[in-house]
């Protein structure tokens, strides 16, 4: 056990962790930030995606100790008070979520995609970039629409 300090959503947070503790366990169990989900054990589903030092990472595949001193942004840190982030708002308007379990990871991964591609984003790029985030409910149709809309690319359909 050791005490670890990670900046999460702008605040320095500390918790006692074992060396084997995963970043997602630190977030969920250490800090009670249960918006980040665990949907698999092989880094396939992407439900645990968070932003770490500006990059989307699957927090089930990062040891908490590797994130020491890092800046981590989770789904809980996206909205501005009651005002949703444009991506959160687009997901809702386009009905890009049903059960909502994959949604936090999908939104955090999309945030990264939009930041990297900006106005160049198109449907094919969205599909290519989000290939590592699984959703079982939506058939992805409305997710692609929401991401393009949030990126300012309008709606393709």
């Amino acid at each position: 056990m050791r005490q670890l300090a990670i900046t999460v959503n702008g605040e320095v947070r500390t918790a006692d962790v074992e060396d084997r503790t995963l970043l997602v366990e630190f977030l969920r169990e250490g800090l009670g930030l249960t918006g980040t989900h665990v949907g698999c054990d092989t880094t396939q589903c992407g439900a645990c995606t968070v932003i770490m030092d500006g990059q989307a990472v699957k927090s089930c595949t990062v040891l908490a100790v590797m994130a020491e001193g890092a800046e981590v942004r989770t789904i809980e840190g996206l909205a501005d008070g009651d005002r949703l982030h444009p991506l959160q708002d687009a997901f809702s308007r386009h009905h890009a979520l049903q059960c909502g379990f994959c949604t936090p990871g999908m939104i955090m991964a999309s945030l990264d995609v939009i930041e990297r591609h900006g106005a160049d984003l198109d449907a094919q790029t969205v599909r290519h970039e989000l290939e590592g985030n699984l959703c079982r409910c939506t058939g992805y149709h409305n997710i692609v629409k929401a991401v393009l809309d949030a990126a300012g690319r309008g709606s393709p359909r």
């Binding site: 918006g35 989770t74 809980e76 949703l84 997901f91 379990f101 949604t103 939104i107």
Partner: peptide
């Protein structure tokens, strides 16, 4: 339902 689910406040 969406607001809680897109803000990480779902109760799974």
């Amino acid at each position: 339902e969406d607001h809680r689910l897109v803000t990480g406040k779902g109760r799974f």
